[in-house]
Every structure is written in C-alpha cells, then in structure tokens.
Amino acid sequence: MARSNKPMVWSLFAAGGTVAAFVMPVLMLLTIMAGYGQLTDSLGYEGMKSFASGWMGKLFLLVVIVTCLWHAAHRARTALHGLGLRADKAVAVIGYGIASLGSLLAVFYLLRI
C-alpha cells in the first residue's frame, strides 16, 4: 500500500494545535483588553506596530496565523466527515484553499507593515 501524503497537512495541523492551545488564548485576552483600552502603551497600537515591523515579530505573527488557519481547516475536514458529510475531497479543497489564501494574505499584509 502506498504511503500517505497526509503528513504534509497533519504536520501543519499538529503545529497549529499546539500554537492554538498555548498562544491563541493569550492573544485573544490581549485583544479583548485592547478593545477596552486596558493595555499598557507597549502593547498598544504603536507598540504592536513596531513589533510587527521587525523580522522576529513578523515571523511570530506569520507562524501563529498560518498554523492556526491550517489547524482549523484540517479539524473542520475531520469534524465534517465525523458529522456525516461525505464530500471529503470538496471539503479538503475548500478548507485548505481558504487556509492557503489566508496564509498568502498574512504574508502580503505583514510585508506591508
């Protein structure tokens, strides 16, 4: 039997799961706090903009966005199959397509900062 090519998407899914579990809750909390003006200046708009201007900041944001997008796409594919949707190919194309588009947009916008 041929060996599967699923490791390609599974590795992004696994990385995204780890990132989503550890980093996303913190980022969500910070975002909510920012909305209520409860952040120190270093985490405010100017502070975050300067963070995203540096290469390390760009790389961090890219890894978080891209891996979480691919995690969500693969999780949705598995969940929809589990829920009884028998159109795995279409779900995969649409889900991974959105993740690819989101990844490209993330690169595009991060490079503009």
Binding site: M1, A2, R3, S4, K6, T78, G82
Partner: peptide, 17 residues
C-alpha cells in the same frame, strides 16, 4: 510495517477522538 501503518487506511484515518 509502515507499508500498512503509514497508508491512508492506517494511522491517517485516526481522528484522535
């Protein structure tokens, strides 16, 4: 063993429920 284990019908059909 990887011929069977690493195929689509092997570990990759597991959704880790």
């Amino acid at each position: 063993r990887e011929d069977v284990v690493a195929s689509n019908e092997g570990i990759w059909d597991c959704s880790f429920a």
